[in-house]
Design a protein around this nucleic acid. Structure first.
Lengths: 142, 142
DNA sequence: CGGCAAATATGATATTTGTCATATTTAGGA
DNA sequence: TCCTAAATATGACAAATATCATATTTGCCG
């Protein structure tokens, strides 16, 4: 469903959301182990997210990645979109190009409504909300 | 969500279901073009499905692949399971090993119920049912 | 029984995804 | 202003998926 890259990216953002802010930046080196993602790989992913303003970063000593209040409003869907592209989530289950309600693939009517529910959830759910639950111990990253 | 292999396999089975039976076998060569799948690739997939009794086959002249009434009772889920394995469908969205209701990942509560609905549908839906709708022109493979 | 036509088995190549490493840029502090 | 510590950019390598090709087995038909 999601690529490894997206999974890692989401885990990374959520961890950052709970362990960083403008005054408390954090380095890849201090994250990768706790969330179980290869260091250099995570670095690349965070760079992409940073470039797209999902997270924030600052170079140099005392620098690092961090998540602002604005960043916290970003959605999970957006993260996936940036890393995987949206085709993976939105395209026809059977890969038929012009599959739609009028010209549906055999699985369309069964899969699409349910999938739409799922995608809408992802589109509404913000990093901040998820991070809060995580922070309260209602969920886990490993 | 599904691998290309699964998509191709499902398309292949459905086409076979509507264009073959015990007395009317059909060769890969006569299928691949209509369902838009590379010939040799489709051949490999049908072999796997045949080995697992999702479809039937006979060698030699007058041979080919075909779908019996028994085959028609197989589920779409089973096809995917054989081609992709079930981990892809059932594993935690964030790839966390022991993610479950008591120890959930941050997305668990949002994704799992919806996904369960979807998977149950796939587990109940038979090749025969889908093929019928397709045959009646209610859906399309391209 | 021999030849041919089909599936089957196996393996080779290509592309994508995942992983790792290194050089470059930038900002802070001595 | 120079050194150092961090992100950033780029690219090399590895593994998995997707694609293609070829040799082998099996069953029908003359």
């Amino acid at each position: 469903m999601l690529s490894n890259s997206s999974k890692y990216a989401i885990k990374g953002v959520l961890h950052l959301a709970n362990h960083s802010n403008e005054d408390q930046k954090i380095m890849v080196r201090d994250i990768y182990d706790t969330i179980n993602v290869p260091e250099a790989y995570l670095a690349k992913l965070l760079q992409q997210l940073s470039k797209h303003q999902i997270i924030s970063s600052m170079k140099g000593p005392k620098g690092g990645y961090y998540v602002t209040d604005v960043n916290r409003e970003q959605t999970v869907y957006r993260v996936i979109e940036i890393i995987d592209g949206n085709h993976r989530l939105e395209a026809c289950v059977l890969g038929i190009e012009d599959c739609n309600a009028e010209h549906p693939c055999p699985l369309h009517e069964y899969v699409n409504p349910t999938r739409a529910v799922l995608l809408n959830t992802l589109k509404k759910m913000t990093i901040g909300e998820l991070a809060n639950k995580l922070d309260k111990g209602y969920s886990f990253l490993s």
